[in-house]
Simulated scan of single mutants.
Amino acid sequence: MAKEALTLAEVSKHNTKDDCWLVIAGKVYDVTKFLEDHPGGDDVLLSSTAKDATDDFEDVGHSTTARAMLDEYCIGDIDAATIPATTKYTAPKQPHYNQDKTPEFIIKILQFLVPLAILGLAVAVRMYTKSESA
């Protein structure tokens, strides 16, 4: 018989350094033993208790090794109906701002030519000072 899914209320009780559970991608993980070894420190994990920590986990960009480690800490599934619906903030798309209305191709050409001119000037100065000292 399959074990009943855990509720967020049950998982939320486990929010200390001695007993820490996280909800990530529909699964519940007991990460208590990992708190000390977590590269970001235990506060990062403790701040993700009592909620769906999936976005927190994904936003960091964990390695495949870190993702594989989750399996050893998995203790069950979360009852999705007990997690309140939240909307993740997404910044509105901003149009590219070109204050003086300079055509894009001119900007791109200048981004290439200006550093090239500075490099050429630096080489010329170096060669000039070298020839003066000789």
Rank of each mutant, 00 (worst) to 15 (best):
D52P: 00
K17V: 14
G40V: 06
N98I: 12
D18K: 11
L35F: 14
K88F: 10
T86N: 14
V125T: 07
C20D: 01
H96E: 15
K13I: 04
L6P: 00
A117L: 14
N98D: 15
H96T: 12
D71F: 02
Y128C: 09
T129Q: 12
E58N: 10
K51W: 03
A80L: 14
F57A: 09
Y97D: 13
L110D: 04
A25C: 13
T32E: 04
A124F: 10
C20V: 12
V44G: 01
A5R: 08
A124Y: 15
D71W: 05
K3H: 11
I118S: 03
K3G: 15
I75P: 02
M69S: 05
V28C: 07
H14C: 02
S12V: 06
V114Q: 13
G40K: 14
P103M: 13
V23R: 00
I118Y: 05
I118A: 09
K88P: 06
E104R: 14
V31L: 02
T82K: 03
E72N: 12
A85S: 15
D30F: 07
F105Q: 11
V23E: 01
K101P: 01
S133F: 04
I75A: 11
F34K: 03
H38V: 10
A91C: 15
Q99H: 07
W21M: 00
A81C: 04
T16V: 15
I78E: 00
A53I: 04
T65Y: 05
P92Y: 03
L22G: 01
S47W: 00
V23C: 01
A122V: 08
K3Q: 07
P39S: 07
L6E: 02
E104A: 06
N15A: 10
L46V: 04
V125L: 12
F57P: 04
M1V: 11
S12C: 05
L110S: 09
